[in-house]
Design a protein around this nucleic acid. Sequence first.
RNA 1: GUGGGUGUAGCUCAGUUGGUUAGAGCGUCAGGUUGUGGCCCUGAAGGCCGUGGGUUCGAGUCCCAUCACUCACCCCA
Length: 419
Amino acid sequence: MIQKPRGTIDILPKEVTLWQYIEQTSRKVCKKFGFSEIRFPTFESTELFHRGVGDTTDVVQKEMYTFTDREDRSFTLRPEGTASVARSVIENGLVSEPMPLKLYYLINCFRYEKPQAGRSREFYQFGAEMFGSENAGADAEMISLASSIISELGIKNVSLHINSIGCSVCRPRYREALKDYFRSHYDELCDTCKGRLETNPLRILDCKSPVCSAIAKDAPKTIDNLCDDCKAHLASLESRLGVMGIEYTVDPHIVRGLDYYTRTVFEFICNEIGAQSTICGGGRYDGLIKELGGPALPGIGFGMGITRLIMAMQACGADKTETERPDIYIASLGEAAAVKGAFLASELRRSGVAAECDVMGRSLKAQMKYADKKGARFTLMIGDSELEAGKAQLKNMEDSAQTEIDLADLPELIKLLSE
RNA sequence: GUGGGUGUAGCUCAGUUGGUUAGAGCGUCAGGUUGUGGCCCUGAAGGCCGUGGGUUCGAGUCCCAUCACUCACCCCA
């Protein structure tokens, strides 16, 4: 028996309606915000992610599905969407479209990680990106978009955390201040944090070890080390969120692990879905387009993990969706009736009716059972006598009421079904 | 990559101190006479007990390895 690859999922018919609902809902909300869908390749040149996501990140260093093709070119299954969108924007000249440029996508991504709750090797995300505005109003719009989708899905158990990690001017300065501080506590830090000190000191801020978090408490705060422009940017975002009535907390622990982020970073967190509690994460990336060879075009975006959304929906009982059921099941007895039934079904389908008929050659009783299990609203029963008379019994499966209908008068039947 | 937990029918699980042909419920399929669902009843199909070694007269039960699932670290959506 051949099993699916580790960390992948099958989405079964009874689950798929929820996925479709999430996809429809996010598309609908995006339309209201003026975002257009974009689609792009599942794999890209490996170089794109090295330059875009960042050489030093875990994602690039140890989590990518990289392969070479028959001509020895190196490609990588996308570990995220932002780098690809940025590439596409540059490559297709979308930098000349009216600004701001607002795009969204529904994609699968790949990361070679050890699976656990809320984390798999192939995962699915909804993402949105906005290019062209350095204004904090853009940040507020993006957060509002994410917030709208989350609440439209009925998710209530989340909180928004925002932070600013500074720009190319103040971030390096802050990193040094942090390093200096943690160096003075070097011996007390946990082993992972000792390693993080040089590579990514910001990460220590969000270490769960009690010792480290105690030390981190008195560490220099990002907020205190921002340059004036970054401070003003954050203040502007905060006041806009306030006006829009979006609740948030400024959380210095929000750090993000992708190199391209600048200034605003944010996460929507749900504490009821396990350790991987970030349902939506994003931030501003003002240097990304230029880094990838385009003009100096600022941008901001976010991604939401679809399976994590589903877990959050389940946690607050918002995951109820109706399964697809036929409008009518046409039961038949005998070959001639079966042929007639198949004909009627195809005619009804042409008129938009969801119609099923027997293809198993089963007894009437078995057909009725099947119609019941599939949740058919009506059942039409045809046998030899009905064929002769041109009339048949239509049974309402809910109240068992039966009415006689004229087999030649399809419009009348369709009318009955749509009531 | 590092730890912990789990692995018996499609699903949820029983399976006594290792002892003959491995069980139940649900689900599936077929019946309960003469053309009708939901309840009830009967029957059937369906398991190399995750896989490979080892201990033993004998292993679903014990040991080792491996794989998968799962949770956590790490990282992130």
